[in-house]
Design a binder for these strands. Sequence first.
DNA 1: CATGAATGAGGGTTCATTCAT
DNA 2: TATGAATGAACCCTCATTCAT
Lengths: 167, 167, 167, 167
Amino acid sequence: MKTKKERILEAAATLFAEHGFDKTAVATICELANVSKGLVYHHFKSKDEILIEIFEKSTSEMNSLGEDENTETPEMTIVDLIENIFFRLENNRQFFQMNLNIMFQPSTKKILERQIKKRATQLFDSVKALFNKTSPKKSGILSYVFISEIDGIALSYLSSFENYKND
Amino acid sequence: MKTKKERILEAAATLFAEHGFDKTAVATICELANVSKGLVYHHFKSKDEILIEIFEKSTSEMNSLGEDENTETPEMTIVDLIENIFFRLENNRQFFQMNLNIMFQPSTKKILERQIKKRATQLFDSVKALFNKTSPKKSGILSYVFISEIDGIALSYLSSFENYKND
Amino acid sequence: MKTKKERILEAAATLFAEHGFDKTAVATICELANVSKGLVYHHFKSKDEILIEIFEKSTSEMNSLGEDENTETPEMTIVDLIENIFFRLENNRQFFQMNLNIMFQPSTKKILERQIKKRATQLFDSVKALFNKTSPKKSGILSYVFISEIDGIALSYLSSFENYKND
Amino acid sequence: MKTKKERILEAAATLFAEHGFDKTAVATICELANVSKGLVYHHFKSKDEILIEIFEKSTSEMNSLGEDENTETPEMTIVDLIENIFFRLENNRQFFQMNLNIMFQPSTKKILERQIKKRATQLFDSVKALFNKTSPKKSGILSYVFISEIDGIALSYLSSFENYKND
DNA sequence: CATGAATGAGGGTTCATTCAT
DNA sequence: TATGAATGAACCCTCATTCAT
């Protein structure tokens, strides 16, 4: 059975994704998680801290993304990685949606400043490690372009989904 | 000299871009625009209406984008269009930033639902009109891919700018 | 008729004197003053600011204390001053009580740090001005002792009153 | 080694003196004393009880003040007593400070109503016993004046110390 | 067109206290 | 004794909106 702290985190993630961080009241999180307000502040110093913990959790999940990939050839690893991302994109839409929300909203961006930078660096480094094996000289620029492309695709995927879902 | 209404709109746009819609108090808009609260509610029915007006204004500016393009050949028009977009991206970063903010934040997305859809349709139609001249059969899919690409590029441009600006 | 702001100040002063600053809820002030919570925060930036304004008001009242005194001789002025203080002590017990409360409670003392110092300086200076006329060489030490004596008397007056009022 | 209960009492006294009773959270006492919240409520029925116990402890310390005095002549005893008080005032400033805090703050005054009265009576009686030996007829009024004077001096000592300590 | 006093609902946070372990 | 998760009431404060002037 889940601990109450986990339930809080889960409820918060759901609500942040659905209504945004600012529009989610702590009281609503409590209702969904079925805990008292006091408990939330027993486990988290503030509402901001909840967001930070969610974001950090998702970062470590992201990092475990490339670890167990096929390692026969670097090219195959990259292909696996891409497939993995698309698989997640389709099955974890809410997660990506929330990450976009968070990173493009000034208020949450400020709260997560450090965490966002850390994640960006980690992502870049691990992608670069892959490209180092295939084209060491251009690995930097390749990684940058690769990540940008993935972002662009994710963006258009999510936004087209969003824009037309009510038709 | 600018009308007071224009000053309100301008102040609001600046603040929405900088702090987000939710975190911008009407009182703060008043201060920046140097008007009273009463006046704001004389010109706009609600805070939401301010956002809507800003968004619609930016939509019509966007539409005027393709109108005065070079029309010698369709290909040249498209090239001009792209250049124009990049020019704006560089010189109007705040504007694009705010549009991303707005469109990826559940609360504002809901407010602007209709306007966002209208803009998406208009954009798609006008891009499609261009591709109709070059490849009528594939104009639909081409437009879709074209817009997605532009979005992706804009996204990566803005986010890389954001992520590294303090280094 | 009193302005609502004055009513707030008055209600707050009464309640601070009776229950102390920390134990007085803003909501209670509102009830007593018959205004909404919002109005309190329209006129005052915070609960602390209410306290500060009350204290500063009482400081200026204090200062006007020596101004209209009998000025035939300095000695008479001092005698008048003492009589005036005792008169106030008896008729304005609540006021002195609150001032003692405030100045001996760490939380409020911190809030009023600047104001307390300013008042102490002003009081000392104006008393010293009086003694300068009677004994210029010893005016400093005389003022200090004079003020201490008055304080001590006020303290014992108030505390004996407090300690035995329920017998 | 100190018992945990003693540690709680000590931590509480320190914090009450520094920040006042109301502004001291039980959680903070726990931190400083390095005990759990549960333990505090095992030893004390409530936060109020902690205050009461501290106050009563300080009362019995006060009473032991006159006991071991020089008893050659009543006059000498009184002189010794005064010296003793001044010695304590200088070396135990925090203790006196806290007592003033407590006794002039409506919320704590109410909690300690009984204890304050008891202490006042005891103090008065023991001072009166001394004066009975020197001037039995006026011992009552003498005791009253004597205590008031001491209070006044303590007050001015503490407040001048407070007001000028940061200069 | 213009002001700003006034409202009231709702938000984040704190904290004394309880209780199962 | 000893712990700390859990509760819930209360608190300070914010803010969109209205309205008399």
